[in-house]
């Protein structure tokens, strides 16, 4: 028997609609603020129960607040996602059809790449094969900016990768479409887009950067957890969650 929703749940859900995705600290802060505002009990370790209550009401409506991890910093995030493809869900007006075609091409470029990234040049070139509408260079650039602003892609030095929001919401789609090409992280067993790869040609396991950081933290000499070869990559620092500014 799930709990009933009150205004603190509703306000939290509204914030999720506005933000799309929040990290763990932000979610905890929102939870606290929503409870304070509507004078309801806030138990810091009960965030997941609080979200479960919302999800029980969202489930029949094809929506969900879904938990996932960021490949970039290893932090837990919460995203509000749509879970069903229907005639109605396809009426979404945020992007035109030809823009969605380009977005899917971008996903494909990223998924099949070694690095989990696609350069703007690669994406621009892929527009040549589009049959729906020829996109000008400036239009493509404008669209990529919008996709970054709306938190579907991230961009670093002209290289685009899938955002945490995109991975969380689109994972079922990516699994259906690219089952064969997907890489899995040897440590956490989730899909890996951006990761380090063992250079032993008979091994080639993949590990997310944050998983690398955690796994090799106290090891004097980094060795592959599968083949025991020397791990030749730079070991990233463990990402410290930014202390809250207020």
């Amino acid at each position: 028997m799930s709990q009933q929703m009150d205004n603190s749940h509703r306000k939290f859900l509204q914030s999720m609609m506005t933000n799309g995705i929040v990290d763990e600290q932000r979610a905890a802060m929102l939870y606290q603020q929503c409870c304070d505002t509507y004078k309801t009990k806030c138990l810091p370790d009960k965030l997941n129960d609080f979200i479960d209550t919302i999800n029980s009401k969202l489930q029949p409506l094809f929506m969900q607040i879904r938990k996932g991890w960021s490949e970039e910093d290893g932090q837990q995030h919460y995203a509000l996602v749509n879970v069903a493809e229907t005639d109605i869900s396809r009426m979404s007006s945020d992007y035109a059809d030809y823009e969605l075609v380009l977005f899917r091409k971008t996903i494909e470029l990223i998924v099949v790449s070694e690095t989990g990234q696609a350069s703007s040049t690669d994406i621009l070139n892929s527009t040549d094969t589009m049959t729906t509408k020829k996109l000008k260079k400036s239009e493509t650039e404008h669209l990529l900016n919008r996709l970054v602003r709306d938190k579907w892609l991230t961009e670093k030095r002209g290289e685009y990768s899938l955002s945490t929001r995109c991975v969380i919401e689109m994972e079922p789609y990516i699994r259906t479409m690219y089952q064969e090409q997907l890489k899995m992280c040897h440590i956490c067993h989730n899909i890996a887009f951006q990761c380090q790869i063992c250079e032993n040609p008979t091994c080639c396991i993949k590990i997310h950067n944050p998983c690398v950081a955690r796994y090799f933290k106290n090891k004097s000499e980094p060795r592959c957890p599968a083949c025991d070869d020397f791990w030749p990559h730079e070991i990233p620092e463990i990402h410290q969650p930014l202390s809250q500014s207020k």
């Binding site: 029949p60 409506l61 094809f62 229907t86 109605i88 869900s89 009426m91 979404s92 007006s93 945020d94």
Partner: peptide, 18 residues
């Protein structure tokens, strides 16, 4: 009836985007 209501609600949320 429940199913149809959910669809109408989804329709409202989608159309309200603009």
């Amino acid at each position: 009836v429940y199913q149809k209501t959910a669809e109408v609600l989804q329709y409202f949320l989608v159309r309200d985007q603009k």
